[in-house]
Simulated scan of single mutants.
Amino acid sequence: MSLRFLSLAGDGIGPEIVAATEEVAVAACAAHGVTLALDRHEIGFAALARHGTTIPEAVMAAARAAQGIILGPVSHNAYPPVAEGGLNPSGVLRKSLQLYANIRPARSRPGVPTPTGHAVDMVVVRENLEGFYADRNMHMGPGEVMPTPDLAIAMRKITRENSTAIAQSAFALAERRPRKRVAVIHKANVLRLSDGLFLEAVRAVAADHPGVAVEEILVDSAAALLVRDPTRFDVIVATNMYGDILSDLAAELAGGLGLAASLNHGATHAVAQAQHGSAPDIAGQDRANPGSLIGSVAMLLAHLGHPGPADTIMAALDAALANPHTRTPDLGGTAGTRAMTRTILDHIAQADR
């Protein structure tokens, strides 16, 4: 059995954590009799310097052909304007491949302290193609305009189609989890039309899942409740921006963004992508935590029907995180990126014996 992934290193700490993730994914797949081949392409500043764009068409062709994609973090805020080649590779992939769902689990790990002391286990299911995100909510042109130098207007797009699709993803996930609960996040008391449409679509899907408990929560209340008691949440479904913000909060409550795995998927493609950014201030220093992207590739493998390698990766990651000497400084540890990766690889090798 074989798989072929496209690997995109990105910017900042991207090359370091992508290299670590590649090693772990190849080893875990081999332990289960799966051969993982990797096609590597440049994106971000490296591609801009060589090709005049941060995501060349050759990359998109490879992405469309790949069975899965490993996407390193990118420094898109530092890119030149789009007219000068400064596209956001993440946004381009999500829009071009129709990756409508962004699945972001937040689970605390043994030995890793959490800010509130709670054991956290939730998943944020975030709509990925609409909302206030200007780079992906229009067919042509941006979603933001400035009629005058002192006036900026952002347009928010919500469709019944994508609201229904993300709700179906959330309820299907909830049915596989022990607690079978979905919290629907909205602000329909103010955004009556757009969030009202989202709520209407989610309620229609909920009616087809009577075994799942449903709670509707205003987004500001949800933020407060997450801090007060994150254990009350199981699956959270939200529009794009709400899901983006709340998933970062949930990740910190579970131990930190360095562990925040993330999977972007649509009907035919899936991308493993760390939830955090490119952290250029620590790039090349062997300090970056590879855990988020490693957890993301485990999600990708499970999504593609390979639970064996996925479970092996997560067990090895948990074992490395349990010891402060084998986890990175952001988690109160003393290990560098390479040392933490070697420990994960050692656990995979031991599990294979």
Rank of each mutant, 00 (worst) to 15 (best):
residue 3 L to E: 02
residue 9 A to D: 11
residue 13 I to Q: 04
residue 14 G to Y: 02
residue 17 I to G: 04
residue 22 E to I: 08
residue 22 E to T: 07
residue 28 A to D: 09
residue 30 A to N: 05
residue 32 H to Y: 11
residue 36 L to D: 00
residue 37 A to K: 07
residue 38 L to P: 08
residue 46 A to Y: 03
residue 49 A to Q: 13
residue 49 A to L: 10
residue 51 H to E: 15
residue 52 G to E: 03
residue 56 P to N: 10
residue 57 E to K: 10
residue 58 A to N: 13
residue 59 V to R: 10
residue 59 V to E: 01
residue 63 A to S: 14
residue 67 Q to W: 02
residue 79 Y to I: 05
residue 82 V to E: 15
residue 82 V to Y: 14
residue 86 G to F: 12
residue 86 G to S: 11
residue 96 S to C: 09
residue 96 S to M: 05
residue 97 L to A: 00
residue 101 A to G: 00
residue 103 I to G: 01
residue 106 A to M: 06
residue 107 R to Q: 14
residue 113 P to G: 11
residue 118 H to W: 08
residue 123 V to M: 11
residue 128 N to G: 06
residue 135 D to W: 04
residue 138 M to I: 00
residue 138 M to R: 15
residue 138 M to V: 11
residue 140 M to T: 13
residue 145 V to A: 14
residue 153 I to L: 15
residue 159 T to L: 10
residue 165 A to E: 07
residue 168 Q to N: 09
residue 185 I to E: 06
residue 185 I to T: 04
residue 186 H to N: 12
residue 189 N to C: 10
residue 206 A to M: 01
residue 208 D to M: 01
residue 211 G to H: 06
residue 217 I to A: 00
residue 222 A to Q: 07
residue 224 A to M: 15
residue 240 N to Q: 04
residue 246 L to E: 10
residue 248 D to M: 12
residue 256 G to Y: 01
residue 263 L to N: 02
residue 263 L to K: 03
residue 266 G to I: 02
residue 270 A to Y: 04
residue 270 A to C: 11
residue 270 A to I: 08
residue 275 Q to E: 08
residue 279 A to T: 12
residue 284 G to Y: 11
residue 292 S to H: 00
residue 292 S to A: 15
residue 296 S to R: 10
residue 296 S to Q: 03
residue 299 M to V: 05
residue 302 A to F: 08
residue 304 L to V: 07
residue 306 H to L: 12
residue 306 H to Y: 15
residue 310 A to V: 12
residue 311 D to P: 02
residue 312 T to L: 14
residue 313 I to V: 15
residue 315 A to N: 02
residue 317 L to K: 08
residue 318 D to G: 12
residue 319 A to W: 12
residue 320 A to G: 06
residue 330 D to W: 05
residue 332 G to N: 09
residue 337 T to Y: 02
residue 339 A to F: 01
residue 340 M to L: 14
residue 340 M to Y: 10
residue 340 M to V: 00
residue 341 T to P: 03
residue 342 R to N: 11
residue 342 R to L: 13
residue 343 T to S: 10
residue 345 L to S: 10
residue 352 D to S: 15
residue 353 R to G: 15
